[in-house]
Design a protein around this nucleic acid. Structure first.
Length: 273
DNA sequence: CTGACATCCTGACGGC
DNA sequence: TGCCGTCAGGATGTCA
């Protein structure tokens, strides 16, 4: 399940492989839910455009395009199971392929998404970022005072607040749990009641887990985009996520699992307060 | 406006 | 062994 580090790694890997290439043709599946812009709109915008850059905003992969001095952007949200593959045309097309972009290099950029929570769309304007970035802030660069202000007066559990993309971009279930563990904060604590010291620890912990995950992912980009998806990211040494009942790596207390904001949530009852 | 909750979708997994 | 039910989750929409 791609969160900020995975999306960043994928965007960087795809960038290196497709930058400067021209999209020669576009095929799309006919599954409506996948396409936030119509398939015709996407094909129209992409065909004959040159790929200038692939990067990440929040959990969205942004492909900067240009064609006859006009700029546009192709937006890819991977959802849970979305994958971007750079393949040669003779590579068998995997099940659940929803888009294939034929590139001038002869290779193909394929979007594959079994569970279909992913979304594809195009935007056409220079200041498009405001349209898709949303109000949330980037967790890796947010200043401490802004971070503290985000949670002021919030009655929701801090875990739910971390997952709220209109507050912070890119934090998903895994890194929310891991960051709370490293900050020593229980996921059900009311966001608005956390102290400055706790929020300071939380920001540091969040940046630490995200940065480390990006570094781990960086070594397996090639596996991810060329072959079968998930290799690499799950080598992550989680402390709490998906470790229900297993001993805490610090104190041996069994990790507990509860539901917060409709999401499974893992924490150490001894290390987190 | 804020927060809680259902919804989408299919593969993986556990139980019988 | 094999079938069936349950669960996972990001974003969105609905409702209180």
């Amino acid at each position: 399940m791609p969160e900020l580090p995975e999306v960043e790694t994928i965007a960087n890997g795809v960038h290196e492989r497709v930058r400067g290439q021209t999209i020669q043709s576009v095929w799309t599946s006919n599954k409506p839910q996948t396409f936030k812009s119509s398939p015709a709109q996407i094909a129209g915008t992409l065909t004959h455009s040159r790929i200038d850059r692939v990067h990440r905003v929040g959990k969205t992969i942004v492909v900067d395009l240009s064609h006859n001095n006009r700029a546009a952007q192709f937006l890819i949200h991977l959802g849970m199971t979305g994958r971007l593959l750079v393949s040669t045309p003779d590579t068998p097309i995997p099940p659940h392929t929803h888009a294939i972009l034929t590139l001038s290099s002869g290779r193909e950029l394929r979007f594959v998404d079994a569970r279909r929570f992913g979304r594809l769309s195009v935007v056409a304007s220079a200041n498009a970022e405001t349209k898709y970035a949303g109000p949330g802030q980037e967790p890796l660069t947010i200043p401490i005072e802004d971070f503290i202000a985000l949670f002021r007066k919030r009655k929701t559990p801090i875990k739910a607040a971390l997952l709220n993309q209109s507050l912070l971009h890119g934090v998903g279930n895994i890194y929310a749990d891991e960051a709370l563990f490293h900050a020593g904060i229980r996921p059900l604590r009311h966001a608005g009641r956390l102290t400055r010291a706790e929020l300071t620890r939380l920001r540091t912990a969040l940046q630490k887990v995200l940065t480390e995950a990006i570094q781990l992912g960086g070594s397996s980009v090639s596996d991810y985009v060329d072959a079968d998806g998930v290799a690499g990211f799950f080598q992550l040494h989680h402390h709490v996520y998906s470790r229900t009942g297993q001993p805490c790596r610090l104190c041996q207390t069994p990790i507990k699992r509860i539901i917060v904001g409709g999401r499974s949530t893992h924490f150490c009852p001894h290390c987190q307060h």
